[in-house]
Design a protein around this nucleic acid. Structure first.
Length: 163
DNA sequence: CACGATGCTTGAA
DNA sequence: TTCAAGCATCGTG
């Protein structure tokens, strides 16, 4: 297998500093800068500074966060994750803008109705924030639930989508 | 390999 | 509000 090149960028947003990693096939990671995976990714994949394939995601992220634009579609590549986790992340992508869901609903959709607790764990490892809209998943009770990157960020995202 | 612990939950007590 | 059940993963031994 041919060694592929990865490109990264770190942008400042109203949500804080965000790390973006891409290759020619799509977006591979989009994480808050403080996520523990960022350093590991840089070290292992040795990405080149500066996006070249999906440069316009930078403007899209900022516009979205400022409520000026909806999320555009970018190809997404899951470089890691178990089949269970990937099926959860793919299911999240089907939640429309401005619509909320809950953990057991996601579990049902992937035909693992009783695995709602595991769904929560899988969502917590989402590699691509915003575009894999894990923030739209809240508790069935109506409480906002938890968020791996902090409730402040989850609340901001939900606010942007008026959820 | 076998447990125990853990994590963006739930439903019942 | 507290708690046990339930499920995929991960760290330990």
């Amino acid at each position: 297998m041919v060694l592929q090149s990865f490109y990264f960028e770190e942008i400042k947003t109203t949500l804080g500093k965000i790390f973006i990693l891409e290759n020619k096939d799509g977006i591979c990671f989009l994480l808050p800068f403080q996520d523990f995976r960022v350093n590991r990714i840089k070290k292992n994949l040795n990405p080149i500074k500066g996006l070249i394939y999906h440069k316009n995601i930078i403007k899209n992220v900022n516009n979205y966060l400022n409520g000026r634009e909806l999320l555009l579609k970018f190809p997404i590549v899951f470089l890691e994750g178990t089949s269970f986790q990937i099926s959860v992340w793919k299911q999240l992508q089907k939640i429309p803008f401005g619509i909320k869901s809950n953990y057991s609903e996601i579990a049902q959709k992937i035909h693992r109705a009783s695995a709602f607790r595991a769904v929560g764990s899988a969502i917590g490892k989402n590699p691509i924030m915003i575009y894999v809209p894990c923030h739209r998943v809240i508790k069935k009770s109506g409480n906002l639930g938890d968020y791996a990157w902090g409730m402040v960020k989850k609340k901001k995202l939900l606010h942007i989508e008026s959820i």
